[in-house]
């Protein structure tokens, strides 16, 4: 492996607009039900009545997640065919010529990155736009973001620049797979494992 690439996710900037998700869908020509990138809404807070008025402590924020091209990916470990494998520069890629569509990787991945294609009858997933990266570009989601809330590069460089946080609620602990991501938390972010809020858009991710 030459170096490990990864994503920077600025949740303090993210407005949940989903341009990343749709730019990816356009380039990769994905059907509605397949989401290589997903935007999670985490929301919480309570309301109490105070006379005619209301008090509340509501919060909400978004986190955009694709494949984290983990240092220790769960998907590759369970793949019976070797179709799911880690490649040069740390990209975790499914070889669609080999994959049998058993969905083991989808069950193993705590981030929901491997996505089954009903049309292709095998797994598909974010490949980090390795073709674009090889041309000196960034993944299409990164170059699409209207808020400039995403970046991509060698993970060590991203960590030097942005720190090492790689998990906030509602994401899983980063100890499972060592995802190659760095998160700038939203000002209202809750730590991983927190239950003040809930995943507010389950049908969209």
């Amino acid at each position: 492996m030459t170096q490990q690439y990864g994503f920077f996710i600025d949740s303090s900037r993210c407005t949940g607009c989903k341009t990343c998700m749709l730019a990816c869908k356009d380039l990769k020509d994905l059907p509605p039900e397949v989401n290589f990138r997903r935007v999670y809404e985490y929301t919480g807070g309570e309301w109490t009545q105070d006379g005619d008025a209301w008090r509340q402590d509501v919060f909400s924020y978004y986190t955009s997640i694709a494949c984290n091209h983990c240092a220790d990916p769960a998907c590759t470990k369970v793949c019976p065919t070797g179709a799911m494998a880690k490649h040069e520069n740390g990209f975790v890629i499914v070889d669609e010529e080999v994959c049998i569509g058993c969905k083991s990787c989808a069950m193993a991945c705590p981030y929901g990155a491997p996505q089954y294609s009903e049309v292709k009858r095998h797994m598909t997933k974010c490949d980090g736009c390795y073709g674009r990266v090889a041309e000196g570009k960034k993944p299409v989601c990164v170059e699409a973001c209207p808020l400039r809330a995403l970046d991509f590069g060698p993970i060590e460089e991203l960590r030097e620049k942005h720190g090492t946080l790689a998990a906030v609620a509602p994401l899983p602990e980063d100890t499972y797979t060592h995802p190659s991501i760095v998160i700038k938390p939203n000002p209202k972010a809750r730590p991983v494992g927190n239950h003040d809020g809930f995943l507010a858009n389950p049908r969209e991710v």
């Binding site: 070797g82 040069e88 292709k120 390795y130 073709g131």
Partner: peptide
């Protein structure tokens, strides 16, 4: 399968692979 020569060698990455990728 891990012993297969990778279809995704870095030098080949500029070319879209068979995985429906990147008409980029």
């Amino acid at each position: 399968a891990a012993g297969l020569s990778s279809p995704f060698s870095w030098s080949a990455m500029a070319e879209p692979a068979a995985s429906g990728v990147a008409a980029a």
